[in-house]
């Protein structure tokens, strides 16, 4: 993937690039909003990672400008401001996701990949399929290799999110934010328990485990 990092702290953007490079992505950096906007307007990026506060045009203005031009490249906002209002303001300006500094590199990689994926599957789907796993979004049913799997509503949402991001790492924070819509950090690893329940339902009795734990990052659903 080709990514544009718009961040005024050069050391931070260099570290980000190294980390994203390790994950197999290509990075272009811009040190402020104005040059970031110019680079983004040339196009060819899968995801833009934009810091909110920068000299010469802040991130929000830059993204607003970009959206006015009809550019829909997914944007991940980075910000030291983690308040709910700040998050809402960032998403309103045209951001697709919001990551509060400081963050783990794995979190950044997972979110960037999730954003790029979201772009590919733009059309409304009624069926999800990952390997043997099939999900009917209208009938709210799940099958694996023809076998019926009975899920609680929340487990269904959790699996839907994992299937939509199949093959990618998703972090615990992402799950808590996108499936439960909570923006806090529980002291106990509650997500692990929910995942292990889901795992016992979809993987039990099958030779190949699909729901895998990614060390230091989170989870991944593999076909």
């Amino acid at each position: 993937m080709r990514l544009l990092i718009v961040e005024d702290d050069e050391e931070a953007s260099a570290t980000m690039c190294r980390g994203l490079g390790e994950a197999g992505h290509q990075c272009v950096t811009a040190p402020d909003g104005a040059s970031g906007l110019r680079a983004a307007q040339k196009g060819g990026f899968d995801v833009l990672v934009v810091d909110r506060m920068m000299p010469r045009m802040d991130g929000v203005t830059m993204v607003e400008e970009l959206r006015r031009d009809g550019d829909n490249t997914p944007v991940l906002f980075l910000s030291a401001l983690g308040e709910i209002e700040d998050r809402v303001a960032g998403l309103k300006a045209g951001g697709d996701d919001y990551l509060v500094k400081p963050y783990a590199l794995a979190e950044l990689v997972a979110r960037v990949e999730a954003l790029a994926r979201r772009r590919e599957t733009g059309s409304v789907q009624t069926q999800l399929r990952v390997g043997e796993l099939e999900m009917d979004l209208i009938g709210r049913t799940v099958h694996r290799a023809g076998k019926d799997i009975d899920l609680q509503p929340r487990e269904f949402q959790l699996l839907e999110f994992l299937m939509r991001h199949a093959g990618q790492s998703v972090t615990r924070t992402m799950l808590l934010e996108k499936v439960w819509e909570y923006h806090f950090d529980p002291q106990t690893n509650v997500i692990d328990v929910h995942i292990s329940r889901l795992r016992s339902k979809i993987d039990k009795g099958f030779a190949k485990p699909m729901l895998q734990t990614v060390r230091g990052a989170g989870y991944r659903l593999e076909a």
Binding site: Y182, H183, F184, P186, Q187, T188
Partner: peptide, 19 residues
Amino acid sequence: GNKAFVAQALANLIDNAVK
């Protein structure tokens, strides 16, 4: 109130109790 803060507070209480 602020739903997000109240939810977090309640989560903390339950977290402690379970722990």
